[in-house]
Every structure is written in structure tokens, then in C-alpha cells.
Nucleic acid binder design. Structure first.
Length: 474
DNA sequence: TGAAATGTTGGGGCG
DNA sequence: ACGCCCCAACATTTC
């Protein structure tokens, strides 16, 4: 009688799950388990929206496992202790998991591996987090690591994919004496004050529903609509991908042949690129990839940071985006670029502040993607481009990507009656119109906390100075 | 009707 | 991975 434990983490699905399918093929009994560690629901990376999403994922996974005759065990505590104890209790000798490439996960899994092996247990990782099965094969022709996206992408497209993992209709039931644990207690204890009706529902079932919807209606026009912040032009699959409710490889196999689908596949490749980059350059988690920008002199301005975080900068599109994040635990991709540029260039604040804030509030907050994208918009990471090419004018961004103002008005309701003509720069509204539209600048809506024109010049100086000091130093 | 003010478009250049 | 500014040349509006 062979028993294998499948340790679930950020891979909360049944479909195309190599660790699970291999366990099912190799063992008589497979025991899926999820472990809450001490900080999962209370640490720096937790919010009400994110916690609820995770619990919905687990609840759905449990339900789907039960539908196949199995179940999901739930435990709380230190992973290595719980896995060793569980293996002893069940007489299991192997623990399978889906490999996770982020520094945090690698560190944790190393410690778990050491503990399990010293207890005589095997700890085996499987692909599934990314569409490609291994990051090791992705090198330039010269044999070096990729540091630029486009060549990486071309290479990535060519890399052979593994076969999809198909699960049988039914799984072996768990022994009846096992304590399955529960998370209803945890569910009852989460703070629900900040939840919005627009928050995505977690879980593989909801994920597949959203995927089908996107493939049926959005994918072929993706390249035309994905930048408009008020349109539902993006896939909104990021949170499902982060928690592993969907397999990126399976999605790839479902993509139609169209310009829109290729544009979306390219986005998927960015996700894999940033996992690749952080895997091979784990120091990026702390510091700028580009050495010459490690000496950047960021501003210290708590007031400005709070205004940014709460959506009170006086720039409507920035404020709408930041409020969307707090309400929905999600932000449109275009919005993320705009607020990232605003924080690092207009306010001159350290990109790590933005990285941490996003990590806390985004449901899809992912160490690799979040770090890679923040370094990208701060112009300090891989895939280099001059600073001025990632320095956005919030007014123009709003005019281009929220032309009718519906995104801004949805999240910044105090601007509701401000005429379109002034919506991108409400501080230019004539006094009489401020009166008639119930929006006095400085009373109902903030005056801009910085002058973009001046801030732009200061930002270019700040980066120039850092580059120049690097040359002098070396 | 003309001249000034205001609006639009396109290309170069930024590093 | 997906800008922006400036300026010149031309077009339109205003008084």
C-alpha cells in the first residue's frame, strides 16, 4: 500500500496538475493537503480581499476533490513539522509539490526538503507553475541568460512544452479516520470590511468560467481593448494564475489563432520572463538590477506616499487607479503603469514602497511579476529603456486610455459632475463651474500634490545624477 | 476682411 | 513593454 502526500500551495487546481497526476499514477492513496502558516492571512502580503480569494480557492478545491471521491486536508502551523507528522500518521514516504521559482518559496522548500529527508521522506517537485517545464534551457545563443524581453520571448515561443496532465474521473478515497481539518473557523475570522462587490471570486471553477468567457468574447480583440481602463478588455486571469487555479500551459493550448491571442500570449510570456529573471537574479528582490541606479536618491515624503496610496494626489486617473486597488484588490494593467510612473518619477519615491503596497493589496500580488514590473516602470530593471520612455504624463494617459472619463468617475465619484473638458485637470476648472459641479478644488477634491511638468524635469535629473555618480565611482 | 489667437498634425530628438 | 515635448507648418476660429 503506497501513500503519497500532495502538498498544495500556489497550485490550487485539479486540471493539468503534474504533481497530482504523477502521485495518482504512482500510489494507491493520494492525500492532498494545504497548510496555513502563521502569517498567511495576517502578514504583509494579506488583505481582506486576498484572504477571501484564497479561502474561496481552497473551498472550491476541496469541493472538486470530494466530487472525485477524495478530499483536501487542512492544517495550520510549520509546514515541515506538519508534513513529517502527517507522513508518519499515514505511512506515506513521498511528498509531491509544484515547483515555485520565487526566492521566498525556494528558501522555504529548501528548509522543508532538509527536514523531510532527515526524516527519511522524499520531497519531489513538479512543473505546472509556468507554461515551460524548465527555466534552465532558456539561454541566448551565446549561452548567457536573457536580460531583454523580446529575444527571451522568441526563444520561449520555441521551447517544447510538456504533455497536459489529465486526471482520472475518480480518485481513491482517504481513510475515514483521517482528520480532514477545516477552514471555516479561519473564514469566520477574516476582516470583511473592505470587500467590494466587484472583487473576483476565487477558485478553479470561477477561473474556468472567466477563462471561457474571455476566450469566447475578449481574446480576439485583446490588442485593441486591453489598454482602455474602463473597458473589460483584459482577461482578468492574473489572480487565478497567481493562486494556480489555472494552468498557463493549458490556457496556451486553448488559445485561438488570432492577433489578439498572440498579443495575450505575449503577456503570458512576460509572466514567465519575470519568474525567470527573479529565479536567476534573486537579489532583484532587494535591489535594482541595474547597478548604476542603486545610488538613486529617493525622496523621503510620507505625506506624498499616503496621498498616493489613498488616491488623493489630485490627478484623477492616478486616484481612480489607487482606489480601484483598495476596493477590488485588482488594478487594470494600464493603471499600474500610470501609478508606478507617478510614484517613482513624479513623486520621486522608492519603487519598493509601491512594490510593498501592491503586494499587500493585490489579490494577484506575485513576488516575481510584481518585482519585475516595478523595476520596469522605475526604469531600474532588466529590459532596459531610457527613463523618459517610462515617464508618463498622467493627463495624457487619462485622455488616451479613459477618453470618456468613465473609469475616473467610477472610482472618484466626487468628480462625477465635472465636465469632460476639465476631468483630466480638474484644477483648471473655472470657479463658477467648480460651484455648479459640486466639486471645489481643495475642498471636495485635492489640488495636485505635484506639478507634473516640474516633477518630470526633477525625475530626469535624479536619474541622470545616479548614472553619472556611478561612472565617477567606478 | 484681416490679423491675431487658437487648434491640429507630424517629425526629430531625447539617451 | 505600450512616451513625451517641442516646434514648425498649416488649418480654423475669433473679434
Amino acid at each position: 500500500m503506497k501513500t503519497i502526500i500532495v502538498w498544495y500551495r500556489n497550485d490550487l487546481r485539479l486540471s493539468d496538475h503534474p504533481a497530482l497526476i504523477t502521485a495518482v499514477e504512482a500510489a494507491d492513496v493520494v492525500v492532498p493537503v494545504f497548510i496555513f502558516n502563521d502569517s498567511l492571512l495576517t502578514g504583509h502580503h494579506s488583505s481582506a480581499n486576498r484572504n477571501r480569494f484564497l479561502l474561496e480557492c481552497l473551498s472550491d478545491l476541496k469541493h472538486n476533490l470530494q466530487a472525485k471521491g477524495s478530499d483536501l486536508l487542512v492544517r495550520s502551523g510549520q509546514a515541515e513539522e506538519i508534513l513529517v507528522a502527517l507522513a508518519n500518521e499515514l505511512e506515506a514516504d513521498e511528498i509531491y509539490y509544484s515547483a515555485d521559482y520565487t526566492p521566498h518559496a525556494i528558501k522555504r522548500d529548501k528548509a522543508v526538503k532538509a527536514a523531510l529527508e532527515s526524516a527519511g521522506l522524499k520531497f519531489r517537485g513538479f512543473p505546472g507553475r509556468l507554461a515551460v517545464s524548465s527555466l534552465e534551457n532558456l539561454k541566448t545563443k551565446a549561452g548567457t541568460l536573457h536580460k531583454v524581453f523580446t529575444p527571451f520571448y522568441k526563444n520561449w515561443l520555441q521551447i517544447e512544452r510538456r504533455q497536459l496532465a489529465v486526471l482520472p474521473d475518480s480518485l481513491t478515497p482517504l481513510a475515514t479516520h483521517i482528520d480532514v481539518g477545516n477552514f471555516e473557523v479561519i473564514e469566520d475570522s477574516i476582516d470583511t470590511k473592505l470587500l467590494s462587490p466587484d472583487v473576483l471570486k476565487g477558485g478553479e471553477t470561477a477561473a474556468r468560467k472567466r477563462l471561457t468567457e474571455f476566450l469566447d468574447t475578449g481574446i480576439n480583440t485583446y490588442q485593441e481593448t486591453n489598454n482602455n481602463m474602463s473597458m473589460a478588455g483584459t482577461s482578468r486571469l492574473s489572480s487565478y494564475l497567481h493562486f494556480g487555479c489555472l494552468s498557463p500551459l493549458e490556457i496556451e493550448t486553448l488559445l485561438p489563432q488570432s492577433t489578439g491571442a498572440e498579443a495575450w500570449r505575449r503577456q503570458l510570456a512576460w509572466r514567465e520572463f519575470y519568474h525567470y529573471i527573479l529565479f536567476f537574479f534573486p537579489n532583484n528582490a532587494q535591489q535594482e538590477f541595474q547597478e548604476r541606479f542603486r545610488s538613486l536618491k529617493w525622496e523621503k515624503n510620507e505625506t506624498a506616499f499616503v496621498a498616493w496610496a489613498l488616491g488623493k494626489t489630485g490627478y484623477p486617473v492616478v486616484d481612480a487607479a489607487m482606489r480601484q486597488l483598495l476596493q477590488e484588490g485588482w488594478m487594470h494593467n494600464r493603471s499600474r503603469l500610470i501609478v508606478g510612473s507617478f510614484l517613482t518619477k513624479d513623486l520621486g519615491l522608492d519603487w519598493r514602497l509601491g512594490e510593498q503596497h501592491f503586494m499587500r493589496w493585490l489579490i494577484d500580488g506575485d513576488e516575481a511579476n510584481n518585482n519585475g514590473n516595478w523595476q520596469w516602470i522605475a526604469s531600474v530593471g532588466v529590459d532596459p529603456a531610457p527613463v523618459f520612455r517610462r515617464l508618463y504624463n498622467p493627463t495624457l494617459q487619462q485622455l488616451n486610455y479613459d477618453p470618456d472619463g468613465s473609469y475616473v468617475r467610477k472610482f472618484v465619484p466626487e468628480l462625477n459632475d465635472v465636465p469632460d473638458k476639465y476631468l483630466a485637470e480638474p484644477w483648471t476648472t473655472p470657479a463658477a463651474i467648480q460651484q455648479s459641479s459640486n466639486c471645489l478644488i481643495g475642498r471636495d477634491y485635492p489640488a495636485p500634490i505635484v506639478d507634473h511638468k516640474l516633477a518630470r524635469v526633477a525625475a530626469l535629473d535624479r536619474y541622470r545624477e545616479a548614472s553619472a555618480s556611478q561612472i565617477t565611482d567606478s
